[in-house]
Write a protein that binds this DNA or RNA. Structure first.
Lengths: 339, 339
DNA sequence: CTAGGAACATAAAACGTTTTATACAATGGG
DNA sequence: CCCATTGTATAAAACGTTTTATGTTCCTAG
């Protein structure tokens, strides 16, 4: 309980025979001390193993060297570990790693608008908000508090906010639809999630635009993210009831796996009768039978972008432009009729 | 840069027409205020959206509600994101999730003995050290600082420290060896990592004990964790040079995948000629050809144990006993000769 | 009528820094 | 010889809380 007594700035001052101010100035390169004194104090501090207390220092609004990461999709899922969902392994892992490499310790923080949030949450240097909803209350809170933040994806309600980065979801969607078309599909349907985040919104918009351009009737089915594979299976009934499509683009990997398995269990063949692809590569997608074509995210690029923007924002430079990272399409057997 | 001005305790006091002390006492349930005043102050604070400043409060040694997680295997790997290594998705993901559910924000912290560590690191309420080495300097540091911590696995050099939890690696090892024996293998070899952590040490000890009991000659090959699949492939040459084994237990999934593929490329058949199993299930193991039998960790149990112990430790109750979680063996085609 | 408690409330000290304002000595120009 | 300047160093204020010590007021017992 009682923390071992640390050496404090006062002790160093005493040992070096100078004032507290002198020590502070020497260590932080401020003030008007002589170079000799400065070096002497530094040596004493080093020898005594002095480390400034981050809290006391933070009280004077010095950066803590830590940022918060809040994963809105997990907040809305209600549980923070979902086996088979790649977000932990992919985005969150890469983001944490890249933050560490920049000397920023990443702290995972629960829904900031919730009841019992850790005291430290509002003291962090800045925030990265993954998968924010439109009009996200967490974003709103950060904004009101004046805490620097960046988001993954834009908020359509707030076009003036430009400190965001994401994969290019619209381009990903078009790539898949073009691929479907090249394989002869004319009536693709979209299976999206229910969260109102940029991924779902941008993908749907791109899908509708594509349908418009190609004279196809848009058919969008929404399945709660939390419904997982079973949600995909269940969606098949609704889809077939409105007419058999010749291709299905399911955004999440688990929905895609469910859709494919649902189609197969009604006697349809993938890819002969229906093409399938997903917007999120995962173990599910890779190892379904047949393996499901998938958009591979580019978390390295996106995470770097997010951290660049956040560091700018923390430094007080307002971000004037967002960034979009290119994704990569991995065609697999689920959507290839040709050999 | 300048943080938006928050409502401070002083403001609340003024608004409620009481002293600062009164507000503090009312909000923290201390002091001797009348119930009426208490409620009135609470209402005012609530209405004004007052939130105590964690730093100022922490200065008086109140817990921050955040814990540090330091992943020593990644520290020693030198990079914090390694595709295909399950540690992120498994232990770290589960641990973070479970910490959040307990109201503790998990912060990933780099090697605490390193150069530029975040200021906040030493202020956290406690630490979980994953995969500590024997005589780990990070553990040493935490101990000296008097910061509560728990470790994953014991330090053989420090038997008196009991605040640790882990999977039962020795039992896992024996399970695999018994399985090998049941399939007719008599001369199993062990491929371990080079890190001096409990997983490697305990597994090797259990392997040697088993060999001793069964009159087999122990053969241990060490491959750096960072060498990955290629390291496993390379190990095959060294193994075969000393005689063909009839079974290989490779602790890491990537080494196992490499070993299997190395064996196959010298013309040996798995499982007909050599059985293969790994101590760490992963996508690699599941989807090699043939799929590799694997020990499945029990991160839920281990992480709960670690957090239980840490909470005890933070509360000042010394942990007097460690915990071991049972693992589960998943036999697959790589080690089954029978149908 | 007063001493001694309750019951309630607050002033002031403390936490460990950084920052601002001030002090002192030495130097140099007039 | 005085004033302004420069080079050093420090005292004290500030950061926003919690905690400790100190008052009040009011009641009750003697």
């Amino acid at each position: 309980m009682a923390r071992a007594q640390q050496v404090k700035i006062r002790d160093v001052a005493q040992a070096a025979g100078v004032s507290i101010t002198a020590v502070s100035h020497a260590l932080n390169g401020k003030g008007t001390l002589s170079e000799a004194t400065r070096e002497r104090i530094k040596a004493v501090a080093e020898r005594m193993g002095y480390q400034a207390d981050a809290l006391a220092r933070g009280l004077r609004r010095a950066p803590l060297g830590a940022i918060g990461i809040v994963v809105r999709s997990l907040d809305s899922l209600g549980e923070y570990y979902v086996p088979g969902v790649d977000v932990f392994q992919r985005t969150l892992g890469v983001l944490s790693a890249k933050a560490l490499e920049r000397g920023l310790a990443p702290m995972l923080v629960p829904d900031l608008t919730g009841r019992s949030i850790p005291m430290i949450s509002f003291m962090l240097d800045g925030y990265i908000v993954l998968n924010p909803h439109r009009n996200d209350p967490v974003v709103e809170l950060l904004r009101n508090r004046g805490i620097p933040y960046v988001t993954q994806g834009a908020d359509p309600q707030r076009p003036e906010f430009q400190a965001w980065a994401s994969e290019d979801d619209a381009a990903s969607c078009r790539t898949v639809l073009e691929h479907f078309a090249a394989e002869g599909a004319r009536r693709p349907v979209l299976v999206a999630g229910t969260d109102q985040n940029a991924w779902n919104l941008d993908s749907e918009a791109a899908y509708r635009a594509w349908c418009d351009e190609h004279g196809a009737e848009p058919r969008v089915y929404r399945v709660p993210e939390g419904a997982g594979v079973q949600g995909g299976i269940d969606a098949v009934g609704r889809i077939l009831a409105e007419g058999r499509p010749d291709a299905v683009y399911a955004l999440t990997g688990r929905h895609a796996a469910g859709v494919q398995s649902g189609l197969q269990s009604t006697g349809l063949d993938v890819p002969a009768d229906v093409l399938v692809a997903t917007g999120s590569d995962s173990e599910h997608a890779r190892h379904s039978r047949p393996p499901i074509s998938a958009i591979q995210f580019n978390p390295e690029a996106t995470c770097n972008d997010l951290l660049d923007l956040l560091e700018q924002s923390i430094a007080g430079e307002p971000a004037v432009a967002h960034r979009r990272a290119a994704t990569r399409f991995r065609p697999r057997s689920s959507s290839r009729r040709s050999g």
